[in-house]
Write a protein that binds this DNA or RNA. Structure first.
Lengths: 221, 221
DNA sequence: ATAAAATATATCGTATACAATTTCTTGAGA
DNA sequence: TCTCAAGAAATTGTATACGATATATTTTAT
C-alpha cells in the first residue's frame, strides 16, 4: 500500500471511530510531524478527505472534521434507504452458503464488539457489514458509493447519535441473513429499508463539546 | 470561483466533450504552462479528477484520461438505471409550471445543438438535463453522485458510443416532461428506466486511435 | 480596567528545487 | 538492418522556502 493511502486510512479511521470528533481541527504541520512526512503528503490526503466530505477545508483556515448538517445527515441516510434495498436482488444472485457463513461470522463479531462496549470496533464492523453486502451485488461503482455513505453515516452518528445507537439496535443483522438464506428478496428489502429508517429516526440533534487532541499519541511513531 | 475550480472545470469539460479522448496523457508541466500556474495546482486537480474516475494516475507515470473498462461502463449505466427512476417521486413534489418551462427550454436547446451537430454542446446539455432533474429531487448527496455519473457517462460515450448515440435518440427528453406535467410518476419512471437502458444498449465495444493534443491552444491564454 | 490598535505567532497557499523514475535517443555490435 | 545497451531528456514524487492570511498576544490610550 502506498504511504498516502496509509495516512488516508489512519485519519479516516480516527474520524469514523469518533477519535477525531466533528469540528476537530487538523493542522497540516502537526499531522506532518505525527506521520513523519512533509506537508505536501498531508495536504493531498486532506484534500481527498474533503472531497469525500469527511473534512471541510476553508481557504486560509485549514481543515477540520466535518460537522454534518442536519440536512446532510438526512440526505445521506435517505440515499442509503433508496439504494441499499434495491441491491438485494443482485446480491441474492451471488448468495450462497459460503457467503452466508462469512457474513454470519461478521455479525457475530459485531455483536461481541457491541457487548464488550468496544465502540470503535463496533462502528467499523457495522459499516463493513453494509458495504460488503453492497459489494456482493457486483456493481463496484455503487458499492464504493455505499461504502462512502456508510463511513459518512458513522460520522453522522458521532454528531447526532445516542451512545446506544451505534450498533443497529433495531434487531440483529443476523435477521437479514436469515431472510437472505431463504432467498426472500422482498422481505429482505423491507427489512433493510426498515433497518435504515430506524437508524435515521434514532438520530438526535444536539452539538457536542470539543477537546484537545494529541496527534503525536494518535498517529506518532 | 477559486482558480483551482476553474482549472478543474476546464479540464473536465475538455474530457467530457471528447476534446481529450480516453487514453490522452496529461503531463503536469505542459498543463501548468497552459494554465499559467505551477505544477502544485495542476497536481491538485489531477488528483481530484482521478478520485472521480475521469483520469487515471499511475505511480511515476502521471495522469491520462481514463479509458473506462467495459465493466465500468456497464456499472455506471446500471447505477443510473437503479437510481434515476427512483428520484422521480421526490422530483414530482417540486414540479411546477416554472420548472416545466425551464426544462423545456433546455430540451429545446439540446435538440438544436444536436441538429446543428454541435457535439460538445450536445453532450453537455444532455448530461445537464439529467443531473438538474436529479437536483430537483432535493437530495444533494444523490444529485451530486448522479452528476458525476452523468459526466462519466459522457466519457463512456467517448469510448464506446456511436456518433449518433450522443444525444438521446430513443426519443426526446420532451416526452419525459409531458409525463411529469401530467404528474404521472410511474410512467415517468418507466420512461426514464427505458431511456437509460436504451443508452446502455447503444454502446459498442471498440477502442479508438489517439492524436497529439495542443494544450496551449486548448487551455492557453 | 477595558477596548482598540499594533505586533507577534501560527498556519496556509503557491512556487520552486532536487532526487528518483520513466521514456526517449543514440550508437555499437551482431 | 535490426537489437539492445548506455546515456540523455523528460517527467513525476517529495521536501522545502517564502509570501499571504488568520489568530493570538501585547501594548497603548481612554
Amino acid at each position: 500500500m502506498s504511504n498516502d493511502e496509509h495516512i488516508y486510512r489512519q485519519i479516516l479511521k480516527a474520524i469514523v471511530e469518533h477519535q477525531l470528533p466533528p469540528g476537530a481541527r487538523l493542522p497540516e504541520d502537526r499531522l506532518s510531524e505525527a506521520f513523519g512526512v512533509s506537508r505536501t503528503g498531508i495536504r493531498k490526503v486532506l484534500q481527498r478527505l474533503a472531497l469525500e466530505h469527511f473534512v471541510v477545508i476553508e481557504k486560509n483556515k485549514g481543515a477540520q472534521v466535518n460537522r454534518p448538517s442536519e440536512a446532510e445527515a438526512s440526505e445521506v441516510l435517505d440515499s442509503r434507504i433508496l439504494i441499499e434495498p434495491q441491491l438485494i436482488p443482485a446480491l441474492l444472485a451471488h448468495w450462497d452458503a459460503a457467503q452466508s457463513k462469512r457474513f454470519r461470522a461478521m455479525a457475530q463479531e459485531e455483536k461481541q464488539a457491541e457487548a464488550a462496549n468496544m465502540l470503535a470496533d463496533s462502528i467499523q464492523l457495522t459499516a463493513r457489514f453494509h458495504y460488503e453486502l453492497a459489494t456482493l451485488s457486483g456493481n463496484k461503482v455503487l458499492a464504493s458509493f455505499i461504502e462512502q455513505l456508510c463511513y459518512r453515516s458513522s460520522l453522522i452518528l458521532a454528531a447526532y447519535g445516542t451512545h446506544g445507537s451505534v450498533g443497529c439496535e433495531c434487531g440483529d443483522h443476523a435477521q437479514l441473513l436469515d431472510l437472505l438464506d431463504q432467498k426472500n428478496a422482498s422481505k429482505a428489502q423491507n427489512w433493510m429499508s426498515h433497518h435504515l429508517k430506524h437508524i435515521k429516526s434514532s438520530l438526535i440533534l444536539e452539538s457536542k463539546p470539543e477537546e484537545n487532541i494529541d496527534f503525536q499519541r494518535l498517529f506518532g511513531r
